[in-house]
């Protein structure tokens, strides 16, 4: 049972790492938002699930944290993307696409 929890935590941190790696590698702010939000959302949910396996009595608060992350993380990223768009940042290679289309 404990090994399942540990594996879930490891999987979660791996996704957190992939999110940060996406943040590191992606060429423009929108792609960074995509990588940074999505991978870290599932990563933290997986970590929470793994902890819930270790400490089953903590499930109410863990569920609350999970719900909170699930609801707020896309809102934060959308707000940020809109702010970036309105400050005039255009997506990477957008001009090229327009030229070909």
């Amino acid at each position: 049972m404990q090994i399942i929890g540990a594996s879930l935590i490891l999987l979660g941190t791996s996704f957190l790492f992939l999110g940060a790696l996406g943040l590191f590698r992606m060429p423009d702010v929108y792609n960074r938002i995509q990588a940074g939000t999505k991978a870290t959302t599932l990563g933290s949910l997986s970590v929470l699930l793994g902890i819930a396996v270790y400490y089953p009595l903590w499930w109410p608060k863990l569920l609350l944290i999970a719900l909170f992350i699930l609801l707020t993380s896309p809102i934060a990223s959308s707000t940020l993307a809109r702010a970036a768009y309105k400050t005039g940042l255009r997506p990477y290679r957008a001009a090229l696409d327009k030229g070909e289309g």
Partner: peptide, 13 residues
């Protein structure tokens, strides 16, 4: 996408 060495993205709005 992140792990792929070529970074296969083709973004647009």
């Amino acid at each position: 996408r992140v792990l792929s060495p070529r970074l296969p993205i083709n973004p647009a709005i």
